[in-house]
């Protein structure tokens, strides 16, 4: 069984991270922004698992990955509940139109 070099894992995670960042930066829609953030978390998890596989001592990376997934699930639940409320108040989920608090 041949092995896949570490760099390939890392490059994939970097690409995934940047796609997520693009989604957040363009700010088209709150749900899409949340999706982008989740992609970034996934990129971090791939990184952790890849480093964990190549690091011989404790496999801490895998444990950290598990916790990171659960934590992001919790924050997605809360963030979606808030987005739902925003939709009920403003009737839109476009960040540009939700703008009552100003200097």
């Amino acid at each position: 069984m041949s092995t896949i070099p570490l760099e390939h894992f890392l490059l994939m995670s970097a690409a995934l991270f940047c796609i997520g960042l693009y989604a957040v930066l363009t700010r088209r829609n709150l749900v899409i922004m949340l999706i982008g953030i989740e992609l970034m978390v996934n990129a971090g998890v791939i990184n952790l698992a890849a480093f964990g596989a190549f690091e011989t001592s404790h496999h801490e990376g895998q444990m950290m990955g598990i916790f990171a997934i659960v934590l992001s699930a919790a924050s997605v639940a809360v963030a979606l509940a808030i987005i739902l409320k925003v939709y009920q108040q403003f009737n839109t989920i476009e960040p540009g139109k939700i703008d009552t608090l100003r200097n």
Binding site: F9, L34, I46, G52, I69, A73, L80
Partner: peptide, 24 residues
């Protein structure tokens, strides 16, 4: 799975695919 982190892969399936997507 290719990083040999089987348990992590299973958690990913259960939590992301089974949980987060459904919530979304």
């Amino acid at each position: 799975v290719f990083t040999r982190a089987d348990y992590l892969a299973i958690s990913q399936l259960m939590i992301y695919v089974g949980g987060i997507l459904v919530v979304l």
